[in-house]
Structures are given as C-alpha cells and as structure tokens.
Design a binder for these strands. Structure first.
Length: 411
RNA sequence: CGGAGCGUAGUAUAGUGGUAGUAUAUAUGCUUUGGGAGCAUAAGGUCCGAGUUCGAUUCUCGGCGCUCCGACCA
C-alpha cells in the first residue's frame, strides 16, 4: 500500500474530549473515526487490524469444528418475548412503519434456538455448534473508553447444542481451550475468571479478563496460579490466601474480552427445542453460548501495546508487516523497487512514498505502529535499515536479506 | 439513570455585548530532506432554537451533542 494513497490521514493533534488511550491513539492515527458516542467507523487501516483479529478467532472456531453462519440483526419482538428478554435495558427497539416491532440483536440465543428447531430432532443430531461474526447493538447508558464499550460493536458468538450436561461441560472446556489459544496468538494474557452470568444465566460463568487499568471490571486473582475471580462474585478478597495455592491474592482492574456461558435448557425450554434420546424419550437440548469481542480486543491491544509516540501492534494483528520509508529523492527509485519486490512476495507493506520531511515520516510511522520499519536513504548506501517498532536497535542489511526476513516471517 | 464539565475553521486552541485571532492541516509558488522544515499568498469558523438588547459568538432559558465520575452492563 502506498501511503500517499491511504484514505485516512494522521492528525497532528489528539482529538479533544477523548480521554481513553485507545480512542485517542486510534482516532489520531486514522484507524477509526467516531460517529457518535460508542459508535465507530473502522477506516481502512483499522479494518485491517480488525480483520486480523477476526481471522484468528475464526481459525480457532473452525479448528473446534464449529460452523460459521450469519443471523439477522433485525429480530422481531415475538422472538424476544418467548425468552422474556424484550424489556432488557440494552435492547434497541424499533418499529416498522408498516407494522411490527423489532429489537436490534444484542445477542442471538433466541434466533439460533428457533433455527435449531428445524434441524435438531434426535440424539444423533447432537452435539452441534455454530458461530457468527456479527455487529451487535446494545443501548448502553454510558458508552465509554473508546472501543471498550460501544453501542455498536463486533462480536463473535458461538452457540452449542448438547444431549446432556456432561457433554455441555466437555464442550465448554474445549471452548475455553480455544479461547486460550486465541489470546495467546494475539499476544494477550487473559485470565480465565469466575463470574456471574448476568442476563444470560444464573450459573457461574467464565470471563477472559485482560489485566488493564482501562478495564471496567475488578478481578481478584493469584499471580502464582490460575485462580481468578470477578469481584462481583465476592467469594475471595485481595490479600487473602489463594484457595488453590496459598499465595496472597491480588486485585486489579481488567477488560472482559470474552465469556463463556452454560445456558442449560433456558432457551431450549422457551423455544421448545427438544430431541429424542435413544429410548425415544423427548428431552430439552442443553445449550451453551460463548462470546468474544474483536473490536473490544482491538481497543485492549492498544491499551496494552503503546508507548509515548504511538501504537505498537503485535505482529499477529498489525495492519502491515513492515513500513518502508524512503528519506530522499535520490533513493526513491531504489525504494520503489524494493516495495515492488516485497509486494510480489505477498508481504503486506506500507510504503511511505510521500515527499515530506523525514521527521514527519518517522513520527507518523511510530504512531501507526507497524512492527518492522525499513528505511532507505542516500546514507544507507544501497542497503536497508531495519528496526523493530519496540526497539532502538538498528541493523543495516541487504535487500535480499530484507526479503528473506519478511517472506519467512509469514504464517 | 444520578452528578460534574465542555461545544469557536478539517483538527487543536485564544478572545470579545459592536468587522473573530493563532497554530496545524489544505491549495499555489519557491526553497528544504535522518525525528512532526522555511518564506509568501489564498481559502476556511462561533452546535441548534427562543429570549434580553439598537446589536449576542459572548448574557438567560430550552434543545442537541461530547467527555469524565458513579450506578448498570460483553
């Protein structure tokens, strides 16, 4: 991508009335644009990152054996009423001018249960799992913290169907494993945290919490083992001994990036979703639902990976693998050639071909936060300067070596 | 939903009851090229409505919007 062709531009000023770090950096660097409180456009640069996150999520869902599908955002009132969730605070309600009321989907247990009725009849049809990547709408009383709490946001929601609790438990643990892999790939340390189910279930659930002062949740956790509990559960307190290993428990703010719920038969009862077991008895399907928020994760990544001069994207989600910067007119042809060679190797590269001062190029490059920077100028004498975004070490290497580094680094 | 603050060019900011200023971004020209370059010229603005006033961007009221704290919530 030629930087001169980028749709967005970098602003020299931070946006006013934005205090959250992720929105300040993402808006200023041209990744997103706020339309309204909690409502964001993902600009080309930002969409690249969002897609990278989504791709990781999809790969792990597919690995689980779940199938991708897509459900509507426009959900008729009747569906919500069957589960008594029409009058929920977060529901956006709208009327058709020709009759009929709808709620914008903020979760899809209702829709998926209704669909499943058409395909699940027998124990032989179980288990099944489907997921979607979809825009969700929640009428938040107070959207805040940039991408961390929006009224419209992207979510991956997975729904599973089982013959009994035991099979649900088995799958629940598989999903936790898949989520762990996702966060590992995204370079995020997420703690599996015991929590309450809110509007979804009365049982305890698990949340994936990323330690960060920008988060809204407070968790009590153990630094030595995996123990972690949302403070809303109030079983453990900071300073007390960890029930699992005896170490002193700690308290921290955290960003809830994903959650898993054992729904049991709440929705299958409401929608009369049943199957025949081996003896011919009719039983309600046992369900689970599992969410993960790619747009929120994008915000969380910025909260965690940044410095005073900008964002530092982990390689797995960076909008580009490398940022090629040409510093002088005389080296422009050389830069252009390297850019073309790298493109032929399918390296995702952002090439700053603009005729502006070196200082501005460096400053903007730092802000965008691509992992690897390549600099060509008269001073590099035919070679290329290579520098990691998060390091000050500069290496001078040949073009061939650059191509080798970038081609081998791809997955 | 309770509380607080704020709305002035694309962005960020001054200021004023009487022709609205600066920076930056933009356009043009010249110069310049290793950490947000220089000079010149140009174009561009008071959130909406009502009230007070000879006159409101400024004061008053209402609306809309944004941010922050709290409650709530992925």
């Amino acid at each position: 991508m030629l930087q001169s062709g980028l749709f967005s531009k970098i602003s020299k000023e931070f946006p006013k009335d934005e205090e959250s770090l992720n929105s300040r950096l993402l808006i200023r660097a041209g990744f997103v644009k706020k339309l309204s409180a909690g409502v964001y456009s993902f600009l080309p640069l930002g969409l690249r990152v969002l897609h990278k996150i989504v791709d990781v999520v999809k790969e792990e869902m597919n690995e689980l054996g779940a199938e991708e599908m897509l459900m509507p955002s426009l959900v008729p009132k009747a569906a919500w009423e069957r589960s008594n969730r029409w009058n929920v605070d977060v529901a956006y309600k709208l009327n058709s001018q020709f009759g009929g009321e709808f709620g914008l989907g903020w979760t899809h247990e209702e829709v998926v249960s209704d669909i499943a009725k058409n395909f699940i009849f027998s124990y032989q049809d179980l288990p099944k799992a489907v997921y979607q990547i979809q825009t969700k709408f929640r009428d938040e009383k107070r959207p805040k913290s940039g991408l961390l709490r929006g009224r419209e946001f992207l979510m991956k929601d997975l729904y599973s169907f089982h013959a009994d609790e035991a099979d649900l438990n088995r799958y629940y643990n598989l999903v936790i494993g898949a989520y762990k892999k996702i966060f590992k790939r995204l370079n995020l340390e997420a703690r599996v945290t015991e929590a309450l189910g809110g509007a979804f279930t009365k049982e305890y659930t698990h949340e994936f919490q990323i330690l960060s002062g920008a988060g809204e949740d407070t968790i009590i956790y153990c630094a030595k083992c995996d123990f972690s509990q949302n403070s809303e559960v109030v079983k453990a307190r900071a300073g007390e001994k960890c029930p699992d290993c005896g170490n002193a428990l700690k308290k921290s703010r955290a960003i809830e990036a994903a959650n898993v719920f054992k729904l049991g038969t709440k929705y299958s009862d409401a929608f009369d979703l049943k199957f025949k077991d081996k003896s011919g008895n009719s039983k309600p399907v046992v369900m689970g639902s599992y969410g993960i928020g790619p747009s929120r994760i994008m915000g969380a990544l910025v909260e965690i990976y940044h410095d005073e001069s900008g964002i530092i994207w982990p390689e797995a989600v960076a909008p580009f693998q490398a940022h090629l910067i040409n510093l002088s007119q005389k080296s422009k042809v050389k830069s252009q050639k390297l850019y073309q060679k790298l493109q032929k190797q399918n390296v995702e590269i952002l090439y700053d071909d603009r005729d502006i001062s070196p200082g501005q190029k460096f400053a903007e490059s730092d802000l965008i936060g691509v992992p690897l920077r390549l600099v060509i100028s008269e001073k590099t004498a035919g070679k290329v300067e290579v520098k990691q975004r998060n390091s000050d070490k500069i290496k001078l290497v040949t073009e061939k070596e650059v191509i080798k580094i970038l081609s081998s680094g791809k997955g």
